Simulated assay, not measured.
Amino acid sequence: MQSSMGSDAPSSVQLPVMLVADVQDSLLVVVHDLSRLDGLLAHTMENLMERFTSASASLADPALQASPELDLVRSTLRAAVTELQFQDMASQLITHTSKILQGCAYRLASESMGMEDGEAVPFVEEVPDRPNPVTQDEMDAGSIELF
């Protein structure tokens, strides 16, 4: 008969402190890079929206006569604006991934190195339970499902 003593204890792996510190630093660098990527996407989307709005306003000029070609261009612009919703979904994914990576970095540090007396505990939101906050996988007018 086997003894169950010690079977309830979580298993652990000893890692060198420098390795843990390097992994934590790398995770936090990735979080920073994801934040920069989110900002770049937001800036690009703002610029695209301005350009699409300007183009659409130019095409709405009454001086232009209605033609099938112009109607096709207008329709294409409307579809392109709808597709810009991907920035919102990308931003949600970046935020979600950043929270997970940041949570992993701080958990790794606290579990492997422990906290010293008087050391401030870094504020980290809880790691999200859902594996993916965005379930949309295609863009059609009126068919977005974000949550």
Score class of each variant (00 low, 15 high):
D61M: 00
S110H: 12
Q92I: 00
S56H: 09
Q87C: 14
R130K: 14
P62I: 09
T76N: 10
M113T: 04
S54W: 06
Q92Y: 03
T135S: 07
I94M: 10
A120L: 06
E119A: 14
T97W: 03
T97N: 04
L59A: 13
S58K: 11
A55M: 09
V124T: 15
M89F: 04
S110F: 11
P68M: 02
P122C: 06
S67H: 11
V127P: 02
E111T: 09
T76I: 04
E125N: 08
G114H: 06
T76V: 03
R130N: 12
V127C: 03
K99Q: 13
G118Y: 08
A63Y: 04
I100S: 07
R130W: 05
R107F: 09
L64W: 15
R78C: 05
A57F: 05
S91Q: 10
R107Q: 13
E116D: 06
S56I: 09
Q65L: 13
D61G: 01
A109E: 08
Q85K: 09
E119Q: 15
E111Q: 10
G103F: 02
S75T: 14
A66D: 15
S112I: 02
M113P: 01
E50M: 09
M113L: 15
L64H: 15
A57C: 05
A63P: 00
D88C: 05
E50W: 00
S98W: 01
P62W: 10
P62D: 12
P133D: 06
Y106H: 13
P68V: 04
A90S: 12
S112G: 04
D88E: 11
D61Q: 06
L72Y: 06
E119Y: 00
N132E: 11
P62R: 12
P128N: 07
V124K: 06
D117K: 15
T53Y: 11
S110V: 10
